[in-house]
Simulated assay, not measured.
Amino acid sequence: GTPPPRSDHAAACHADRYLLIFGGGSHATCFNDLHVLDLQTMEWSRPKQQGLAPSPRAGHAGATVGENWYIVGGGNNKSGVSETLVLNMSTLTWSVVSSVEGRVPLASEGMTLVHSNYNGDDYLISFGGYNGRYSNEVFALKLTLKSDLQSKTKEHASDGTSSVLEPEVELSHDGKIREIAMDSADSDLKKDDANELLVALKAEKEELEAALNREQVQTIQLKEEIAEAEARNAELTKELQTVRGQLAAEQSRCFKLEVDVAELRQKLQSMDALEREVELLRRQKAASEQAALEAKQRQSSSGMWGWLVGTPPDKSES
C-alpha cells in the first residue's frame, strides 16, 4: 500500500520503471522500510527483501551505480548511522559496504552524495552533513571489483549474514574532490593515457590562449571606445556649461523685464487714475460753463422783457 507520510527519505529509480523509497522520518519516528512504486501501473508495493535488515534512519543520502543503490549517513534521533549500505535493486538484497565509529562526518544527516567515474573507476563523493556540528569535509569512496562485490553480496544474502566488504572499497578524504580522484588514480594511470591527457590539456591551453587574445583585443577596443566616449562627454559638458551660462543670462534679462513690466503696470494704473480725475474735472468744467451760460441767457431774457414794458434793466445787474 501507500507508504506512511514522511520526510528526509531517499529515493531512486530502477529500470526506468520503478521508484524506490527508503527510510525517512515522521515527527520522532524513523523508518527502515522499503516501498516501490510501479510507474506504469502507479501502484505501491512493499516487496520482500534479503540480507541484513537496515537500521532506521532519516536524513541519509543515496546514489545509484548500475543496479546498486548506495545509502550513506543519516540519523535516528539519537545518533548518526555508522554503516554505509548497498541495495541490489534487481535482487532487493541489502549488504554493508563499510562502517565507521564515533561521531564522524560520514555518520551525519543532510549530507550530499554523488556518483563519479574517473579513469574507469567508480567513486562515491560525499560532502557536508550535521552530527552535533556542521561539516564541510569531502569523502571519496572508491568502488572496485564491482562484479565480485555483487557476487559476494548474493553469497552473504543466501547465508543470511552480512559483513563489511573491506577489500572492495577504499575510503579517503581531503579538501578537494578533484585531488581525491587524482591521488587515488595516479598509480593506475598509464603512459598512453597521460600522453592523451597532455595533448588534450595542450589543446585546451591553446584554445584558452586564443580566447584570451580575443578578449584582450576586445578589451583594447572597449578602452578606445571608452576614451572616445569620455572625450565626447567632456565636449558635451563644456557645451552644457555654456548653455547654462546663456540660460542664466537670459533668466537675468527676464527678471529685469519682469521688473520693468511691473513698473509700467503701476504707471498705467496711475495714468488711469489721472485720466479719471481729468475726465471728472472736464465734466465739472462743462457743467459750470453750462450753468453760467444758462444764467446769462436768463438775464438777457429778463432785460429784454423789461425794456419792452418800459422798465429799463437794472444797470447794477449788468
Rank of each mutant, 00 (worst) to 15 (best):
Y18N: 09
E258N: 04
T161K: 11
S99A: 04
T29M: 07
Q50M: 06
L52A: 12
P56M: 07
E204W: 15
Q216D: 08
L293F: 05
A291D: 10
N117R: 09
E83G: 02
Q221C: 01
G110C: 07
G110D: 02
R265V: 12
M89W: 02
Y70Q: 06
H27C: 13
Y130I: 02
S301K: 14
L308E: 07
R283C: 03
V164W: 01
S55V: 12
T41P: 10
I125P: 00
N88V: 05
E215M: 06
R103T: 15
S302I: 07
L208K: 14
V65P: 06
V259G: 13
A194K: 12
S82M: 08
G175V: 03
N213A: 12
Q266I: 00
H60K: 06
L92A: 06
K205P: 06
A12C: 12
L222K: 03
R57N: 12
E137H: 02
E225K: 14
T29D: 13
Q266V: 04
E279T: 08
Y134V: 07
S316R: 11
A10S: 09
R282C: 01
L143M: 10
L293C: 01
I71H: 02
K176M: 05
A10V: 11
A248E: 13
L197Y: 05
A287H: 05
K152G: 02
V72R: 04
G310P: 06
I125H: 01
A63V: 11
L37K: 05
L274P: 05
I180M: 10
S151A: 13
S158M: 10
E155R: 00
D260H: 07
N195E: 15
E206A: 14
E209M: 15
E137G: 00
V309N: 12
V104T: 15
S55H: 03
L274N: 10
L264K: 04
T242W: 11
T2L: 12
A61T: 11
K154I: 06
K256A: 02
V114D: 12
K315G: 14
L268D: 10
L141I: 11
L212C: 09
L39P: 11
V65A: 05
L39G: 12
T242P: 06
C30T: 15
R46H: 09
S300E: 07
A10N: 02
E317R: 13
S184I: 10
G24H: 03
E235W: 12
V278C: 04
Q251K: 10
L257R: 13
V278E: 07
T153K: 00
G24D: 02
R282W: 01
G132D: 04
C254P: 01
R214V: 05
S79N: 07
H9L: 02
K190G: 03
E209P: 01
S187Y: 15
I21H: 09
E235T: 15
A211M: 10
D314R: 15
L143I: 07
N88E: 09
A234H: 15
